[in-house]
Design a protein around this nucleic acid. Structure first.
Lengths: 229, 229
DNA sequence: TCTGAACATTAGGTTATACTAATCCCAAGC
DNA sequence: GCTTGGGATTAGTATAACCTAATGTTCAGA
């Protein structure tokens, strides 16, 4: 019997899927994901992470540099992107087809992403017309594991009198999401930066719904694409 | 702090949910579910069942008579019916909204039933117009845990020259379900029993699609409601 | 009435995942 | 170039599920 067929790789467990996703997000800006960051994100104790890291690097899903942190291997990255695709397709589906709000959809998707089959995800994607972004504007990886890498700038860092398109909202916190939606600050909105107060003050933007004053904490979550001239 | 709030009952694990469902189905005709029947249904070894049975009776979900079998308590029955509602709503949803066939929908629902929230189930139910039967004709429990108890007769036991409505198909086996659908033998179909061969021979029925000869194995799975005169 | 087959249970071990407590490493500041 | 504090790791324990092997129980028929 050929080796390829002999031992089918055991399917990943829920925990493993969660760790890979966490590591993907934490090492997105190129660096290492540290033990304590992973522990904080998954709300487990650091020793639990050390243990899992050992197993994951033995199975070739991550690369571990002791006392430094971990990074995904190509295989681990594929698995993480598969989970992210599932999560984001689910978020779009629940929002578009079952009346969920963008601030309530995360938890449901978080549980379902481990249970749905690839087949079901692709049926949902087809029913939705193969969406490219989730309700928060985050890009959805393709079934082949490609993901769009956009060059976005945080509103907090934008220069006054530039015009931007709000592309992605970098939080899942329901309270923040609800407030942003009330202010009309959702992906796709055009923003003109009116002014920026000194000493880490708020940013004032003009939106189709009127002028809005956005505090720095929120402005740091609003990722925008500079408008082409 | 009042006792009711002090220790919220820990949510049931996947395994527990599966055991309760299995026990519900096995003790449906009023009797005890035996260790080996449960083991066979869940494809685990009998000692695993003994272990789980001990835990479940300690937590008050089942009543255990050693060497005899188990039955659900009122609390266990509620939990089982909740799972059955989830399963059947999911089956209807996947069939009606996402193009699943009635022979392929079982496995997907089996995994999802543990992951969906009650809220999502009720949203699906509402989107479907609160269906009362799943694609196989089985009744769907209400959110309050009521389930219709119909008096159905197996086609295998029906007298010749009676007229019946096929109500429920008692299998989840894809091959059998596919064949039955090809023959037009789906819930809702009106059947007239033309004849019954002796010596456990097949049953001949007239359907809107023409005459069909149904072997005894399949006829035992076709649960029918005698037509009112 | 006894006995053996079939079924149920106990005993003891494995794996995955988590925890706390104890120890280890390393880099930053003196 | 030492010390020290905080993050990382190891050690040891717990729990939920599962397994195989050994032992117990029941009942039907010789």
């Amino acid at each position: 019997m050929p080796a390829m067929l002999r031992d089918a790789p055991p399917p990943l467990t829920r925990s493993v899927e969660d760790y890979l996703k966490a590591i993907y997000h934490l090492s997105a800006q190129g660096g290492f994901a540290t033990t304590s960051d992973i522990a904080a994100l998954l709300t487990v104790a650091p020793p639990s992470v050390s243990g899992m890291v050992k197993r994951l690097s033995e199975t070739g899903l991550i690369e571990h540099v002791p006392y430094r942190g971990v990074q995904l291997t190509a295989q681990g990255r594929r698995a993480a992107l598969r989970m992210i695709r599932r999560h984001r397709i689910l978020e779009v589906y629940l929002t578009a087809q079952l009346g969920y709000d963008w601030d309530g959809v995360h938890d449901e998707a978080e549980r379902l992403e481990h249970a749905v089959s690839d087949d079901l995800i692709e049926r949902m994607a087809r029913a939705l017309g193969d969406p490219r972004y989730d309700p928060h504007g985050a890009p959805i990886p393709t079934p082949e594991g490609e993901i769009e890498e956009a060059e976005l700038v945080a509103l907090a860092a934008a220069a006054p009198s530039t015009t931007l398109e709000l592309r992605e909202v970098g939080t899942q916190d329901p309270a923040r999401l609800r407030y942003l939606a009330e202010q009309g600050l959702v992906p796709g909105t055009r923003l003109h930066v009116v002014s920026r107060q000194p000493f880490n003050g708020p940013v004032t933007v003009r939106t189709p719904g009127g002028e809005r004053v956005v505090g720095l904490e929120l402005a740091a979550l609003l990722w925008c694409r500079p408008e082409a001239e």
